[in-house]
């Protein structure tokens, strides 16, 4: 089969930032969980850090187009995500793993990933190959035919990652992807993240500062729905050398940033 690289694949993008939010406000129920957030994310792996209730999950839901922002502007891959008309074509280029990964217990791994590829309107001919590749990338080749209800928590998490990357998304959102993974799998997952971040925008929301320092190219710290700090992982480590509480320089950097922010507010 001969495949030619098409002109659209080589085309430069017409947007500067895959994710661009200005004054973004998103409600979770009645509570305004994201309140006036300004954020710009480029290509690479972005670690989204913040305490519980900082609005990370709500932000991820807004960026994944599941929640409608109640104010401000949100541009994703150059499209206005508050405009309903562009959602269908925009969603084909998104991958999303929610914090609560719901699944259908009777589906096999392959069937589930295939169903998600179909929901994202991948071309019919490309689906089987893409499903196999996604399952292999998360290391579940041996269990591809197993029903989801027979899998362990860590394996389910990996199925969730597989369904998120099956359509080779330009914007990939992973909410707590490393929960339940054993140390070896976490190291493998970091390698996968670096691969994915080479040519797409990956946003990883997590509590684990060491994951961010190891695998991310950029750190985003949010608290109470606002951006507190954005910078390189090395800068976070450097901040930690000066003070703060924690067991590693990165953790000390994280706590010192939060303390400074809270005392200023």
């Amino acid at each position: 089969m001969v495949r030619m690289v098409s002109a659209t694949e080589l085309e430069p993008t017409t947007y500067a930032w895959p994710v661009e939010a200005a004054g973004l406000r998103v409600k979770a129920g009645r509570h305004v969980a994201v309140n006036g957030l300004d954020l710009r994310l480029g290509t690479g792996v972005h670690g989204l850090l913040g305490p519980n209730g900082a609005g990370k999950t709500t932000l991820m839901r807004a960026v994944s187009t599941v929640h409608r922002p109640s104010g401000g502007s949100l541009r994703l891959l150059g499209e206005d995500a508050t405009n309903g008309r562009v959602l269908r074509s925009l969603r084909r280029r998104l991958g999303y793993l929610p914090q609560h990964f719901g699944f259908y217990p009777r589906f096999t791994v392959r069937e589930y990933v295939e169903y998600m590829a179909w929901l994202r309107e991948m071309p019919k001919a490309a689906i089987p190959g893409a499903v196999q590749r996604a399952v292999e990338r998360v290391g579940l080749t041996g269990r591809a035919g197993a029903k989801l209800k027979t899998l362990s928590g860590g394996m389910l998490r990996r199925v969730g990652i597989a369904q998120a990357i099956v359509n080779d998304p330009d914007l990939l959102l992973l909410d707590e992807p490393t929960v339940g993974l054993d140390p070896e799998q976490r190291v493998e997952f970091r390698t996968l993240l670096r691969e994915l971040g080479a040519d797409s925008c990956v946003v990883v929301s997590t509590h684990l500062v060491e994951d961010v320092v190891a695998a991310c190219t950029d750190v985003v710290l949010v608290d109470e729905g606002r951006l507190v700090w954005q910078g390189l992982p090395a800068e976070l480590v450097r901040l930690g050398e000066r003070g703060g509480t924690g067991d590693s320089p990165a953790e000390r950097g994280y706590t010192s940033l939060l303390t400074t922010h809270r005392s200023a507010a």
Partner: peptide
């Protein structure tokens, strides 16, 4: 009723087609 609603709702077939 849909355990995977959050993933499903963010896909392009979500909405009127589903």
């Amino acid at each position: 009723s849909d355990p995977a609603w959050e993933i499903t709702a963010g896909t392009s077939r979500a909405g009127l087609e589903l």
